[in-house]
């Protein structure tokens, strides 16, 4: 469950990124957040992974109230939320396998458990063959699937995908979206932000539209309308 209650973010330079945004996402939902550049999508995502704190308002994810979580527990919070970005954020000097394993290594998972978990997740995203390739040796779609594998390997309850198809061609974009749907069917909450009208309209899932820092539309089966 993700709950934002009248969340406002004002930057030191007086820019208002979010103003009184409220939204409620149920467990196992697939939600798309749309909005023009600068509408506040990225701020919203940075709030969810607690890279930023709201100026006012309340954020609760799962059973964790972001106001009361102490700094030392932020890494543990982030381990429960998988995040995927437009620019993949893979470590270039690690192979596909190592990039995925890395997420487990930083959490102190035993090596033997890592050896068991990583191949499974690589199979799920269809990258078993490319396990020992470096990011520079694979396509954009494969890079994004690696990033998704890395986000999923710790069995997060929530997967946040911030414009995951932004750098991909239509074919690869659809592969990624289908992968996200598959992950959602397995029971993970998926929060997707995108600019891709075709994808939003074809998904026929809940769409939240953000404009100028406010939630202006929230439809059960929404369409891209900006």
């Amino acid at each position: 469950m993700i709950l934002l209650d009248r969340v406002t973010v004002i930057y030191p330079n007086k820019t208002v990124a979010l103003s009184g945004a409220s939204l409620h996402i149920q467990p196992k939902e697939f939600v798309t957040i749309v909005g023009a550049s600068g509408a506040g999508k990225s701020t919203l995502i940075r709030l969810l992974i607690k890279e930023e704190d709201p100026t006012s308002g309340k954020i609760i994810v799962g059973s964790i109230d972001y106001d009361t979580i102490d700094k030392a527990n932020i890494p543990h919070l982030r381990r429960k939320i998988g995040v995927v970005f437009q620019d993949f954020k893979l470590l270039p000097n690690l192979t596909v396998y190592e990039n995925v394993a890395f997420a487990l290594e930083v959490s102190g998972v035993k090596s033997s458990d890592i050896k068991r978990a990583v191949p499974k997740i690589l199979q799920l995203v269809g990258l078993s063959e490319k396990a020992h390739h470096y990011p520079t040796e694979i396509s954009g779609g494969e890079k994004q699937r690696t990033a998704i594998a890395r986000a999923l390997v710790r069995n997060p309850k929530i997967l946040i995908a911030d414009e995951p198809t932004g750098n991909l061609d239509p074919k690869n974009s659809w592969d990624i979206i289908e992968l996200l749907l598959k992950i959602n069917r397995f029971g993970t909450t998926v929060v997707l932000t995108t600019h891709n009208k075709d994808i939003v309209n074809a998904l026929k899932k809940r769409v939240i539209t953000i404009s100028r820092g406010r939630v202006v539309k929230d439809e059960k089966v929404g369409k891209y309308s900006i």
Binding site: P75, K89, L91
Partner: peptide, 16 residues
């Protein structure tokens, strides 16, 4: 710095 950012994102503790 990129590596550090990624480490933070995937939930590495401060000491890691």
């Amino acid at each position: 710095r990129e590596e550090i950012e990624i480490m933070k994102l995937v939930g590495a503790t401060k000491w890691f």
